[in-house]
Write a protein that binds this DNA or RNA. Structure first.
Length: 266
DNA sequence: GGTGCGATCGCCT
DNA sequence: GGCGATCGCACCG
């Protein structure tokens, strides 16, 4: 079950979908004390370690949901986003995986490294995608979408720098709703390839202090994106996202409708 | 809202 | 030499 309800997406600056509402003084995200309650004592974020990443690929892909990816920029700014969409790439028999058939190359070396190893690769000459190695030979989890939690202004400017000058300002939900968008918004560069998400000083994964564990019912299973040419592996339900979250890149209405109808019969 | 298309280059065959 | 785990924009309805 989820914990306290809250509106989505959250905003650090009193903005709703990019529309300024109220300017707030910047505060450290972990130092808010005004909402403390003796009945619901605030829990701290906990950095996730190797034991978290060391689980089977599909299990890890689901476990990522609700966790918070943190990127600390050289100037000390911390950008935070809650993981809302992932894909599992199993390696071996998974024809859609870069490591299909155990194929190991210079590019995908990180997929074969210890669980928690970051795999960043360039695609279409102009974009990057970020994965995290899991348990299993050549298996990794693709991070597809985040719900921005803090640093939205910086994310927006990082994203805007690659768009047409004068283009419409991006809504919060549009900052990280795609694998290459989240790399741009969090300034995840190629140099992160083969680094360790469990110990790195500039990128890590945390628990969300406002998020209870994610239940199975909140997770939508869907086909992966952009792998249509891989036969039966294109249809396997190896994409996972948080039901109803507006920051998800591609909704799979069919799956959601089926589950919804089933729940209506109860 | 949805669809179609071009961009752009490192990596692999 | 060909292609891709994508994206933004133009265009249509």
């Amino acid at each position: 079950m989820t914990g306290r309800k809250r509106s989505l997406p959250r905003s650090e600056s009193g903005e709703v979908d990019g529309n300024p509402v109220e300017k707030l003084v910047h505060c450290e995200p972990t130092s808010h004390v005004d909402h403390l309650s003796p009945y619901f004592p605030k829990r701290d974020s906990v950095r996730l370690t190797h034991s978290f990443f060391n689980q089977p690929c599909t299990q890890l892909a689901k476990a990522f949901l609700g966790k918070v990816l943190v990127r600390k920029l050289p100037d000390g700014t911390e950008l935070r986003g809650r993981v809302v969409e992932t894909e599992a790439y199993l390696g071996g028999e998974d024809k859609a995986s870069h490591s299909a058939g155990g194929k190991r190359t210079k590019r995908n070396e990180a997929m074969f490294m210890a669980p928690g190893t970051i795999y960043v690769y360039p695609i279409y000459g102009i974009y990057l995608c970020m994965n995290v190695s899991s348990q299993g030979d050549g298996a990794a989890v693709l991070l597809r979408s985040l719900e921005p939690l803090s640093g939205q202004k910086v994310m927006r400017s990082l994203r805007a720098s690659k768009r047409k000058p004068g283009a419409k300002s991006l809504k919060d939900r549009e900052l990280c709703n795609g694998p290459s968008k989240l790399c741009q918004a969090l300034e995840i560069q190629r140099c992160f390839d083969r680094r360790d998400l469990a110990t790195d000083a500039e990128a890590w994964l945390e628990t969300d202090p406002e998020q209870e564990t994610v239940s199975e019912a909140e997770v939508v299973l869907a086909p992966r994106i952009g792998v249509d040419s891989y036969g039966e592996w294109a249809t396997k339900l190896l994409r996972f996202y948080l039901r109803g979250n507006p920051c998800v890149s591609v909704f799979h209405r069919d799956t959601e409708r089926v589950v919804h109808n089933l729940s209506n019969t109860n």
